[in-house]
Design a protein around this nucleic acid. Structure first.
Lengths: 226, 226
DNA sequence: AACGAATTTTAATGTTGTCTTCATTTGGCT
DNA sequence: AGCCAAATGAAGACAACATTAAAATTCGTT
């Protein structure tokens, strides 16, 4: 499950991201409205958490434009305690729920899960690529019907790859999403984990799904390749 | 697409350069304001990423002088977290966007892409010349519907040629856009790469798109040829 | 708390593909 | 023909990726 957090305060976004990641969500962070919109345009999210007090583009304006881009994704809005006046405005602008700062993480999590459940009725939680199938609810993986056991990191990597079928993901992006660390370019951990994944999901099968794009990164194939 | 990174911290600049290179940008690095200015004067960049906390010449001063040299190139400024006071000053001094450290690479990339898109009204994500088609988003190339695999350099060269359809590009111009600075002047690398490209995108087809202009350089044909 | 097993990470080595140079051939132009 | 620019082919240097093993860490169990 992918969540985008649009929040300018580094401390808050870190706190939220950490907590959500512990719940096995894949979290992206954006520090203001402009890049938040950019993310929302480029990638698909299951939920967006949006702080209204943003530098640059105002939160309400961001929300409005977000709706132009994607009318379906659930948006949870964070506001300051005394901003109740805006409440109506926000709900009208397209927020699905709101939470006032400061908040307990447990409360945020409860609301996040509620929103996801609500939307889950008509959305599938299974991603399929060829005969490979990943269920995000039960966090299980099958290929050709057979269950494949993955470790936490292997699963996270596979989910990230499958959520972006056909797109090439750079090592930098993969490290950021799966390992949540930056600035450490002297590691080949992505290569090693790709190997682990290949051993489990590609090795025993005829058709290989994980493709290496030299100089760029890795990608899940959707089309039949040469 | 060429990007100049002016940043004194080796770790940060390596991290940024690596990530951008995986996105197929040609990246030059400068470690301080003076050499940053020098690069910006000597070469043309599509975007400049400038750290404000530089040794020697201050970042703001660098920015001001940069604008004297080139008023158009988009500049993305990196600042320390608590330097919000300078924010207005920087935007006034000519920064197009800013990002506070520490930042996630995905966020930097989102902003870079947004800035590049903003600057070019006529730049769509897909360039077409006859039945040849280059998609800047997915970085893929097709001719007559068939996907063509290119290496990093081949792709960069083709993008530059296609972005300047009909115009004749000299070898010097090509080297300056596609390769990064440190390059020896007695080389026929452009010829060699044009050959590689022709093998992949012209050889199998009837109509040839890359034209040689003797004594000058190369060009992509847009009109129907003789 | 201590042990062992499984997972994660680092590190070293082997392999492959790309980049670059160089030498040679081809072909246009005067 | 003779000159010069461009095309071509191939080989070596180099960087990126694959693979393996071993070290470090985590986690559950006793």
């Amino acid at each position: 499950m992918r969540i985008l957090v649009v929040e300018d305060e580094e401390k808050v976004s870190r706190f939220v991201a950490r907590g959500l990641e512990a719940e096995r969500f894949a979290v992206d962070k954006a520090a203001d409205g402009v890049s938040g919109l950019e993310f929302a345009t480029l990638y698909e999210y299951d939920l967006i958490i949006l702080d209204l007090l943003l530098p640059g583009l105002s939160g309400t304006e961001t929300l409005r434009r977000l709706r132009e881009v994607n009318a379906h994704v659930p948006v949870l809005v964070l506001t300051a305690r005394d901003a109740i006046a805006d409440k109506v405005e926000n709900l009208e602008a397209g927020a699905d729920d709101y939470l006032t700062k400061p908040f307990a993480f447990a409360e945020l999590l409860a609301r996040v899960k509620a929103l996801l459940r609500r939307g889950a009725v008509n959305r599938s939680n299974v991603i399929r690529v060829a005969d490979l199938e990943l269920d995000r609810l039960s966090q299980t993986v099958r290929r050709g019907g057979n269950r494949i056991e993955l470790t936490a990191k292997e699963y996270a990597l596979l989910e990230y790859l499958m959520a972006n079928v056909g797109r090439v993901l750079s090592r930098t992006m993969i490290i950021e999403h799966v390992w949540d660390q930056s600035f450490d370019s002297v590691t080949n951990i992505v290569d090693v984990y790709v190997r682990h994944l290949r051993n489990k999901i590609d090795e025993p099968f005829e058709r290989k799904l994980i493709r290496t794009v030299r100089g760029v990164g890795y990608s899940m194939c959707d089309e039949t390749q040469t």
